[in-house]
């Protein structure tokens, strides 16, 4: 309305998280790892399946965390990358008879490329505009998957049924347990790589952009390159998660990858703590189990109960699980003294 230009000293959308605060200490990491390794030995196959999904969504939340928490870019379109990864794995397994393990790196590479290309126009957008662009991507994806043109490969609206792999070398374990340990190995690998990425030169560049883009650029950071790179890496990891998801669920269909999934992943990131990588698994647990809890409380009002629980969480700990961890750390330090 007014011709005058607004000059804004804008606070960054994502607050600065020092990089050391992005990970867990070695001791805590080992305890968590031991728990993840041993738990399946004592529970039913169904719980193992849920734990597999927990790891898969944790990977997807982690990927979003690298993008938002790391480089400060917002995305509501992660479901699109997840879908591309899932379909890549499913199509390679069912049409090309490829080994499931081999399909994952391919899914990752394809999604990396896809994310990198999408990152180009996204470069010029920020805040709500970027939110809309990624949102558009998420809404478009199921429609693209349904297109008659791709139907021969994607199965169109009917989707594709995927065969679940058996444990190799005649290992005496169920399909579910094997897939869990396989997913766990992939997740640990990606987690370690992500932590190292954020500690590296590239990671520092991401964070410089997140904290102040103009200042970063003045300091000689190639803003365009690192922003698109962040999109690529995030999409690549999400793609691997999508591939694993397709194998675990044994089915891909356009209805599985709607905007609802993107919103869930976003919630997972907020609940886990933006920019705190270990929080990803807490966020993932939230989006898998809290809807079940809500449903247990009331069928007719499950949505409302979920909303109320979500409000409770963000009221009590607006910074998510990271805040809980910080408080716990503080308490432990006090006890030691």
């Amino acid at each position: 309305m007014s011709a005058a230009e607004d000059v804004v000293t804008e606070a960054p959308a994502v607050e600065a998280v020092p990089k050391r605060a992005m990970t867990l200490g070695l001791g805590t990491s080992l305890v968590v790892l031991a728990a993840l390794c041993l738990a399946p030995l004592f529970v039913k196959n169904f719980i193992i399946f849920q734990m597999t999904m927990l790891l898969i969504y944790a990977l997807a939340v982690l990927a979003l965390n690298i993008l938002t928490g790391g480089s400060g870019q917002f995305s509501l379109g992660q479901s699109a990358f997840y879908a591309v990864g899932a379909y890549t794995s499913a199509i390679l397994m069912e049409h090309a008879n490829m080994n499931y393990a081999l399909t994952l790196p391919i899914a990752g590479v394809i999604c990396f490329a896809f994310g990198f290309i999408f990152g180009q126009p996204a470069l010029r957008l920020s805040g709500v505009y970027l939110a809309l662009a990624t949102f558009a991507l998420a809404t478009a994806m199921p429609q693209l998957l349904k297109l008659g043109f791709f139907e021969h490969w994607t199965g169109g609206v009917q989707g594709l049924v995927v065969t679940k792999p058996d444990a190799p070398f005649g290992l005496p374990m169920s399909q579910d347990m094997w897939l869990y340990y396989f997913t766990l190995a992939v997740s640990i690998g990606i987690y370690i790589a992500s932590v190292n990425l954020l500690k590296s030169r590239s990671g520092r560049a991401f964070m410089a952009i997140r904290d102040n883009e103009i200042a970063a650029s003045a300091m000689g950071v190639d803003v365009a390159l690192y922003k698109t790179l962040a999109f690529g890496v995030s999409a690549g990891i999400t793609g691997v998660a999508g591939g694993l998801g397709a194998i675990a669920v044994q089915f891909v269909a356009p209805d599985g990858y709607t905007i609802t999934l993107a919103i869930s992943l976003f919630l997972g990131m907020v609940v886990g703590g933006v920019g705190w990588l270990p929080g990803s698994i807490v966020g993932s647990a939230f989006i898998i189990f809290v809807p079940n809890i809500a449903e247990g409380i009331s069928k007719g009002l499950s949505g409302a109960v979920f909303g109320v629980l979500l409000f409770l969480v963000i009221f009590l700990v607006p910074h998510g699980a990271r805040q809980v961890a910080m408080i716990a750390q503080g308490l432990i330090a006090k006890l030691k003294n």
């Binding site: 039913k44 196959n45 169904f46 999904m53 669920v249 209805d255 599985g256 709607t258 809807p291 499950s302």
Partner: peptide, 22 residues
Amino acid sequence: VTYDDGYSPPKAVEQVRKLVES
């Protein structure tokens, strides 16, 4: 015993496995 799948195939698999195995 009835569960919500939110019309999402991955959730349907999770809930049906819960029905059968748990």
